[in-house]
Design a protein around this nucleic acid. Structure first.
Lengths: 191, 191, 191, 191
DNA sequence: AATGAATGAGAATTCATTCAT
DNA sequence: CATGAATGAATTCTCATTCAT
């Protein structure tokens, strides 16, 4: 019989790869990277342990893929504001969009906070997500400078930290955290 | 030689216990809870592996002790403000004291952020530290209410989250993080 | 297009089979039989893993083919002397030819020494190469007997062992081994 | 209860360590290094897999210990002749001693030939045994030079190779190999 | 004949914990 | 209370081989 076409194989790879990444994201996020075994991911994704390694050559490589995948979201969001924030309205929108993004992908951001202080993953982390955050902060710095802030870099960093803290609270406490009210006040304080 | 008195034994035990806790805190904090082996703690604390288990019946119990020990600090700090914050000056002082505490015990707070999203440790975590934080926030809520804030609970939560975010940034970035400037602005925004 | 004739197919199969054997010989020789994966052979021979198994039904069968293929060389060489060695000149020529053969196919002889003490492959080994060696030694035995040697079987065996040892040295040490000088002395001692 | 004394522990370590090395030597020798699993060594030595790693931190480290242990023998033998070979009688004795050593520890020398062409172990090999062999050859070189040999280095190398080949034959063929007769002839040819 | 995804049985190694002394 | 050897389950990863197409 004829072998599958290259396209068919690609399709298989793409789909299963996605499935594995989704599953891994979920498990890493819920159980923590270190505590998640490749076995458990395989099982949950209905893939044999061996086959997992046909897709990702190590646990670390799988994590990297998971992070890159999550980053794409972030990236899409960043596009919207990378051209600069030119008004209070735009600022407000940027902040709200940011949290929308977090709301719509809590799993990924839980992983983010899970990893942020894990030395084992820190390298990966700074390699993939770090650079993005920096650029992101620059946009806000510019906004604050235009507004006449005397120390826009610090303000941007404070804003960033605040958003980190709020996100962390929301991720950890779940629906008990009054995210929308918090966002309103946050905007009020920084706009 | 005269046999040691019961008190002396007590003393020895207390000291060794302390030493183990200190060592564990350091290792958990630097390497992560999951990645730290009992072996490595024993070695660094100059205690035999078997003896470790005379002091703490399991790795988890050791972690619990480490957290309780760290909490004592927090507790001491909380005493200062538990009676209420009655002026802007007091508020500023409270905030600064809080960060002083963090500065003076970065190791513990690194562990705090390391654990906060580790499900394996989350139960422990909420059991020991959670209740404290809640009371802590209440004090700020009262302060904001007195100041006429329309939504003091939310403001207190935002403040708490901001402090979390700032602490996280400081812990992660180390001396690159302009903590003092950040604190100044934070106080300005919330006082 | 006209369908290929049976002969053409035959030809293709033969060529690919040859290619696989060459590749396997190289890999087995360089990396060791146990340490060489079927995967790596497939990749280097530009053959799919599955297809490999259309040509050779197992790794062991592939090794067997590799050995048989190498033996053909040996066999051709043996032809030259199988009719007997009738003079010192012929003896010298036989020895030199033997080492020429080894020089011209170091890869195979490296594999030979790699396998000679691997139990996993020993059966195969003795099955395929053993019988040849025996006959080979007989020719020398006859030569030594004719020369009046009192213990020609032992001398032949000593010669064989010496040639093994020299080959081993040459294979292992590469160009640092003064093979030609060694051969001269060897001939001197045995002729 | 009082803990075991340091001496007791040392004794345990020494004995078990020896047992493991002996077992590993046997298994490596019979089955080949690559094909021997740590599991199988543990089982045969009546040691748990985990405990194996209390004694040797990796399979490679275990191999290294096995080799060093075997080298001690070689070393003891080398002592005898390191001061130089001053007569044909001494030469003969040196050769015979060498083969006595091999006879009395066939298992080790089987491993030697097993490893000699395994790339995975080659580094280890050259690190531990290589330097010894070189010195060993020097002694013979000196002997041949004194005897007026025009190319003593080559002769020594040929002798070494011959001894390698003879040893290999003996190790591989076992009692079918007429070792004693071979040695007699070997001495005759080189003395 | 050809493809490469899938399987599953190990392999080496780690580690919390227990045990004998 | 102290010691460190011993255990065994779990973990990551490899690889010959099979399968569906």
């Amino acid at each position: 019989m004829a072998p599958r076409t290259a396209k068919q194989y690609e399709e298989i790879k793409r789909k299963k790869s996605s499935l594995i990444i989704d599953t891994a994201l979920l498990r890493f996020s819920e159980d923590g990277y270190k505590s998640t075994s490749m076995q458990s991911i395989a099982k949950e994704a209905n893939v044999s342990k061996g086959n997992l390694y046909n897709y990702f050559e190590s646990k670390e490589a799988l994590l990297e893929s998971v992070l890159r995948y999550g980053l794409d979201q972030f990236s899409a969001f960043y596009e919207q504001i990378s051209s600069g924030i030119s008004s209070e309205k735009k600022f407000e929108h940027a902040i709200r969009s940011n949290f929308d993004m977090i709301k719509s992908n809590k799993v990924f951001w839980k992983l983010y906070f899970n990893l942020i202080s894990q030395p084992s993953a820190q390298l990966l982390f700074t390699k993939i997500i770090g650079p993005f955050l920096e650029e992101y902060m620059k946009v806000f710095e510019t906004y604050f400078r235009k507004k006449g802030d005397k120390n826009p870099a610090v303000t941007a960093l404070l804003l960033g930290s605040t958003m980190d803290g709020v996100s962390l609270g929301y991720i950890m406490m779940g629906e008990m955290y009054p995210l929308d009210d918090i966002i309103d006040q946050l905007i009020e304080k920084f706009k």
